[in-house]
């Protein structure tokens, strides 16, 4: 349980439901440095566990290669990842991450937070 705020980047929240949420701030451009900060906080909250994780990238502007590689390599603390997108830009970034960068854990893309949470909690498609 806990919340960390990375100003201008994201809020990282571990909820009572066991889902770790990374909620990107609107207008953020994610780069390697920021991704590293998120990864460090994620690992701290996960405390050695592998957590179902939700990432909301609806408002981001871009995600560079370094940030995508870091995210894709977080299999030690991410059990499954639900990527929430909204609009063409985040959809392209999400799909690019899923199909080109290829994370080393199960990943799905959702258009709503609700659908994403349902999948993370109950494993439904």
């Amino acid at each position: 349980m806990g919340t960390r705020v990375l100003p201008g980047v994201a809020d990282v929240v571990l909820g009572e439901d066991g889902i770790l949420r990374i909620l990107h701030h609107v207008g953020t451009s994610v780069d390697g440095e920021r991704a590293r900060q998120i990864s460090a906080v994620h690992a701290e909250l996960a405390a050695g566990r592998r957590l179902p994780t939700l990432i909301d990238i609806s408002g981001i502007r871009s995600a560079d290669r370094a940030s995508r590689e870091i995210a894709a390599g977080m299999e030690d603390s991410i059990e499954r990842l639900a990527v929430v997108v909204s609009g063409p830009v985040s959809a392209v970034i999400g799909n690019f991450f899923l199909r080109v960068t290829r994370p080393r854990y199960e990943t799905r893309i959702f258009a709503s937070i609700g659908a994403a949470e349902r999948w993370l909690l109950r494993g439904e498609p």
Binding site: V85, S86, G87, P88, V89, A91, A111
Partner: peptide, 12 residues
């Protein structure tokens, strides 16, 4: 646009 996205305008 997105896998499950709603129709988007030309600019986005």
């Amino acid at each position: 646009a997105g896998a499950r996205g709603e129709p988007a305008g030309a600019e986005p």
